[in-house]
Amino acid sequence: MFELVFFSLLNGLVFGMLLFLLSSGLTLIFGMMGVLNFAHAGFYMLGAYFAFTLTGHIGFWPALVLAPPLVGVAGALVERHGLRRVHRFGHVAELIFTFGVAVLIEEIVQLVWGRVAKSYEVPALLDFPLFTLFETSFPAYKSFMLLISVGIFVFLFLVLTRTRAGLIIQASLTHPSMVGMLGHNVPRVFMVVFGIGSALAGLAGVIAGPVLGTFPGMAQVLGSIVFVVVVIGGLGSLAGAFVASLLIGVLQTFAVALNYSLKDAAAALGIGLAAQSAFADLWTVTIAQVAPILPYLLLVLILVVRPMGLFGTRET
């Protein structure tokens, strides 16, 4: 049992921190521009594909350094030449625009790299089990993923709270016109934030590609869950995104491990539920089976109980 709990916790952390890499960019962009960026998961996918191609030419490590900035530049270009023009037509137009970009990215990826999953592999240097406890080994690559995402979290936190640039970004979040009056180029700040957000998503793609698979559906698979993270954490809140990412990561991995159903819960309370009733299907469903919908259940609960999210300041 200890083994199961320990490894579930580790896996939950790894997945949670990966979610954070994705949601941090999304929540920053939302906080600043009020844009729910549908294309965000698309940039994550671009990161994985860029890294896959670069790895073939120059190896994994240079690709790890080069791919995220490339994605960031792509993101900045989308902001500069697309989103900024659409901005004046209001939020619905922006929303539809980012949705269009998301579809476009998926189609472009399929055109360039094809529909078949790519064999983007863990680099040989990290392809060994870090440690083996009982009978399970924990891959070195996963600890590397954890390390990178924790590093990024610390870095983001320091930049936003301890540097001048961070101050301007924070100010632009809440008082864009005031920042503009003070002589800062607010549109450029927006572009940079959008670029950095995209680069973070790209980085998530670079490190997640070898583990979660590099295929054209990868954006779709993570896209919806990232929105859930951002809404639960509170739109625009970095701390909220962090807590919600870990919460959902751990929640999902643990839920899979639990084979308990409503029937078992009732039995523990001394209530016997009939096996032949019309609702038998409902109470024999185990937590493991509903694991993937738990985040969405949590989303609904949060929206009902605390619409601004865990750490948010404004209502969704």
Partner: peptide, 11 residues
């Protein structure tokens, strides 16, 4: 819909 099969493998 499963993104990461590690928990299942763990089980």
């Amino acid at each position: 819909k499963v993104k990461d099969f590690s928990p299942y493998v763990q089980k």
